[in-house]
Each structure stands twice: as structure tokens, then as C-alpha cells.
Nucleic acid binder design. Sequence first.
DNA 1: ATGAGTGCAAATAGTTTGCAAGCTG
DNA 2: CAGCTTGCAAACTATTTGCACTCAT
Lengths: 138, 138
Amino acid sequence: MSNSLVDKSLVHLSEAGLRLTKQRKAMLEVLAKAEKPLSAEEAHAELPSGTCDLVTVYRSLEQFDRVGVVQLGVRENGTKVYCLSHGHDHHHHLTCRICGRTERVDICMAEELEQVGRSYGFTELSHVMELFGTCPKC
Amino acid sequence: MSNSLVDKSLVHLSEAGLRLTKQRKAMLEVLAKAEKPLSAEEAHAELPSGTCDLVTVYRSLEQFDRVGVVQLGVRENGTKVYCLSHGHDHHHHLTCRICGRTERVDICMAEELEQVGRSYGFTELSHVMELFGTCPKC
DNA sequence: ATGAGTGCAAATAGTTTGCAAGCTG
DNA sequence: CAGCTTGCAAACTATTTGCACTCAT
């Protein structure tokens, strides 16, 4: 159970037809212990040195997102960030612009949004929502 | 009336201490007639040729956002987009990943989000929310 | 006239692509 | 052993910065 999140994600990857490599496992471990969404560069920096190339992180995170193993977010400056889907319900974040402190926000209007999307005939709906502010210390 | 949106925005800029230049006026006109949020590059492309440098568009849009004349959004790929605040209530968009078709979405949870932010002691709250999907034609 | 704003060039940050070699199922 | 994956290098896109010059107030 130490790593049930990672295990669940690995199964998910496998079922989605993606291959299980040591690089990907390491990335999932990093994502599992992160308390906030990580960018590709940040995830790479957290990997045991020499685990894999930054490019591989970009490519894998893209695949992870495609099959739903991770949830994609965007920072105020446009940087893409990812966090594991398993073990976390769909959620969003409140991030301090200055220090990066991040808090989890559980409110989400996914259903309402998807309903609007469907009313226009759109499919494969997804959404991005992030809250930014200045935290008490900054 | 032809340009009340632009006029309101110009007044707003002026009151915020920003200067009124022909470049900025041209940008506001482009934003006023756009039916969807524009990136800096797109806004620049819509300007009468030779109006100003792309860099100026970036710098001005940043200022516009800072004083609230425009509303910032982010595309799924991280590109920042802007639309006029005046004349439009705060809102969001539903964008087709394939063709870029964009529909306005009026639902927003700004209040709930800001309340959560304040509960953590955060100030100067802002949020980004965008909905993506594949439209009927694509 | 004074400082905000602009243009041009150059630097960055984040991300993507091409291709040959490696490893998974 | 087929083809998904990776590494390395290089290209790209979006955006930012430095600096001298210009213009709005």
C-alpha cells in the first residue's frame, strides 16, 4: 500500500496499451509523492538523477494525460502542470503567484461545464481551471 | 456607439494612469471586434499592417490585464489569450481543439473560488478557466 | 521635460520533432 | 521481433528583456 497510487496508475497505463518502463514508473512515483501539480521540468528535477531525459518526461506526461492517468492543469504563465488522477478526485488548485505555495480546491463545475459543451454538440470535453493569488506570507 | 467598448476601455486605461497611444487604440479596436479571445500574435496579425511591433502588443496586453481592461485566458496548449472586459461580463469559453471555433460560456464560479482563496488568506485572487472539446464538424 | 511607451535585436522558457538505437509485451 | 519508447540534438513557439529613441501628458 505504500505505493497503491503508483500501482493503480501502472495498471491503468497497461490497460490503455502503454508500456511500463522504469522511467515511467519513476515518474509516477514522483507524481505520487508531490503535493502539488508539477510541470514537466519540475517532475524531471525530482527524478533520481539520470533516470531519463527531459524529453521523455514531456512525452510520457502527454501520454499519461491522453489516457487519463494524470490531470492536466495550466499555470498563470501558461506552463502545463500534471498531477495523478488516481487517489485524488478531480480537483483544482489555488497557487501563490509569489512563492508557489499550492492548496487544493475541491470545488469544480465539471458537470455544468460539460453540459454546456454538449449543448453545443462538442465532444471529448475537458477543462482547465486554476486559481491564483498572493498568499498571507507574500 | 460604434465604438463605445473601445471608448470605455480608453477611459479605463487613462484612469489607471496608462497612456493613450495610437497603437493601444488600434489594439482595443481589434479586441472589440473579435468574437473570441485573441493571443498576442493573433491580435498583432489583425492590426492594420505596420501599426506596431509584436512586442508592443505583448507589453500592452500585459498592462491591459494588470489594470483590468482585458480578461486573461489560457488555451489548452498554454497560450495566453485576451478579450475586452468592458461590454462583456466576466465569462469563459468553450473552444474546439481542432478548428478553434469558440463559444461563450457564461457560467463561472468566481465567487466560490474567491471565497476559498480568501479562506486561505490569499489576496489579489484571479482565476483561469477554459473548456475544450471537439466541435460537431470536427 | 520627464517618464511611460515603442521598436529592433537578442535572449529565454517551455515544448515539440527527427532519427537511430533500445527495450517491452 | 514488431513497434512502442527513449536519448540526443535541433527546431520551434510564445514570451521576455535590454537599450536607445519617441511621444503623451
